[in-house]
Structures are given as structure tokens and as C-alpha cells.
């Protein structure tokens, strides 16, 4: 019984780290630029497909992932330029519609290029780690390690570089950041680049575990928005802990109640958090300015 519980906990953490990995990029772009970037799921999808294509062309997985991420960075900056920058100062609803449009266009383009058939990237790391208490695949270990590395990298960029200082300033007070002479073009580019790279890396890693297809990004982004609400919008710590928490809840509900309730459990949790603590676990209440 205890074995089973430990195994389910590990399952939950593994699932949760995939949610967190997707949520990181989303929370960054939302936190800094206040853009509900639904197209993040497509950064994730394109990252997965490019990695797949490059691996199929004979490249090493990690090299393919890096090249895929670079291409998605360019895509991210392009999306910002075309879909969001012209809407500066527009109400959030316009941004949301623009994001959805970008997301649909990318999905359809991917369908034209790769068709809608599901496929999986050959796993770079195979095998299973068996301990007396639980079993975990090495690929899951890689995903969890990547989450830790990603968080460390973002933390370092945000807290140890001048650019990071500018990004944090923009997130906290947009106008004041302008008054400091911070260039919004630079901050936007950097934020979209980091966000897109995170999406692409998540896509490549998870595409080696799950099937990839043009609409693969829709569900993870919805889950990532749940994670943001749980953890607090714009909070990196919230994204990580919110993701892990969501994964655990889903697995425990599926494991001990019923698989049919798995999604219902997640969204019930969402409603509860919204009722009890609307700013999320780690978010600070928004002050009207």
C-alpha cells in the first residue's frame, strides 16, 4: 500500500514537472508583458516537430533540441511582432483573440507540413530506474532535471544580469521602467525569446515521451493556465510548485478515486483556489494603480 502511494507520488511529480515546464514560459510572458499567450502551446508543438524532423534527419537529440529551440525563438519574436506589438495598449481581450488567432494559424500550418498523424520522437534516454520503493523512467528523470535547470537558468538571467533587471522592472511597473530608459523593444524580444525557448524545450522533451501532433499544445496550455492560477500569475516559484501540485492531485484522484475524475479533479481545484485565494498560492494581490 505504501509502495503504491510512493509510486503514485513519483508519478504525480513526474506529470507535474511536465506541467511546470510548459507553465514557466507562459508565466514569464504573462508576468512581464501581460499577454495571455495562447500560442505558447504552438511554441511547444513546433519545438517538438522541429526536434522530431531533425532527429529523423540523423541529428543527435540534444543538438536537434537546441536547433529547434533557436528556430522557435525566432518564431516567438515574429509572433510578437505580428500578433502582439501592434496591439500595445489594447484591452486584454484583443490580446487574447490575437493570441488565439496566432495559435490556430500555427496549428493549421503544422498540419499542412506534417499532417495530423501522431508520432513520437525517439527517446534519447531509454530505460527505467527501479528502486525498492518506486519505478521511474530515465526520461522522466531527464524532464525533472530539465525543469530544475530551466528554473535555475531563468533565475540567473533575471537576477544576475542587467537584462534580467530590466525584465523584472518591466514586470513590476511598466511606466516606471520606461522612465528608467529601459527599451521595451529589447525587453519584449528577450522575454519572448526566453518564453519561446522554454516552450520549445518542453515540446522536445515531452515529444520524446508523448505523441506529437499539430494540436498537441492545446491541452498543455490550458493546464498551464490552471497552473498559473494555482501558483499565482507571473511567479516562477508559483509555476513550479503549482505544476507539481496539479500533477500530484491529478494522479492521486485518478489513482485512488477514478480515472474518469482526473480532469474534473483539476478543474474543481481551480475553482476552489479562485474562490479562496484568487491571487494564487504565491501571487501577490494586484493593487489597482
Amino acid at each position: 500500500m505504501l509502495d503504491l502511494f510512493l509510486q503514485q507520488t513519483v508519478n504525480g511529480l513526474a506529470l507535474g514537472s511536465t506541467y511546470a515546464l510548459v507553465a514557466l514560459g507562459l508565466t514569464l510572458i504573462f508576468g512581464v508583458l501581460l499577454i495571455p499567450n495562447f500560442a505558447h502551446g504552438e511554441f511547444y508543438m513546433v519545438g517538438a516537430f522541429l526536434t522530431y524532423a531533425l532527429v529523423m534527419a540523423g541529428l543527435n537529440f540534444w543538438l536537434a533540441m537546441a536547433l529547434g529551440a533557436l528556430a522557435v525563438i525566432a518564431l516567438g519574436c515574429l509572433i510578437d511582432l505580428v500578433a502582439f506589438r501592434p496591439l500595445r495598449g489594447a484591452p486584454p481581450l484583443s490580446l487574447m483573440i490575437s493570441a488565439l488567432a496566432a495559435s490556430i494559424i500555427l496549428q493549421q500550418t503544422a498540419t499542412l507540413i506534417w499532417t495530423s498523424e501522431a508520432r513520437t520522437i525517439p527517446t534519447p534516454v531509454t530505460g527505467v530506474l527501479r528502486t525498492p520503493f518506486f519505478i521511474v523512467t530515465w526520461m522522466q528523470v531527464v524532464v525533472m532535471a530539465s525543469l530544475i535547470l530551466s528554473v535555475a537558468a531563468i533565475w540567473a538571467i533575471l537576477n544576475r544580469t542587467r537584462l534580467g533587471l530590466a525584465i523584472r522592472a518591466t514586470a513590476q511597473n511598466h511606466d516606471a521602467a520606461l522612465l528608467m530608459g529601459i527599451s521595451m523593444v529589447q525587453v519584449r524580444l528577450a522575454t519572448f525569446a526566453i518564453g519561446a525557448a522554454l516552450g520549445a524545450i518542453a515540446g522536445a522533451l515531452l515529444g520524446a515521451t508523448f505523441p506529437i501532433y499539430p494540436t498537441m499544445g492545446v491541452n498543455p496550455v490550458l493546464k498551464a493556465f490552471v497552473v498559473l492560477v494555482l501558483g499565482g500569475i507571473g511567479s516562477l516559484r508559483g509555476a513550479v510548485l503549482g505544476g507539481l501540485f496539479l500533477g500530484l492531485v491529478e494522479v492521486m484522484v485518478a489513482g485512488y478515486l477514478s480515472t474518469e475524475l482526473q480532469d474534473i479533479g483539476a478543474f474543481t481545484l481551480l475553482v476552489l483556489v479562485l474562490l479562496i485565494r484568487p491571487q494564487g498560492f504565491f501571487g501577490t494581490a494586484q493593487v489597482e494603480r
Partner: peptide, 14 residues
């Protein structure tokens, strides 16, 4: 479209 079946599979394996 589901991707994670670990909870159900863990139960099943047991």
C-alpha cells in the same frame, strides 16, 4: 489526446 496514464497503470500493475 491523454498522455499520462501512470496513475491508472500503477494501480493496474499492483
Amino acid at each position: 489526446g491523454d498522455t499520462d496514464f501512470s496513475a491508472a497503470m500503477t494501480k493496474l500493475v499492483s
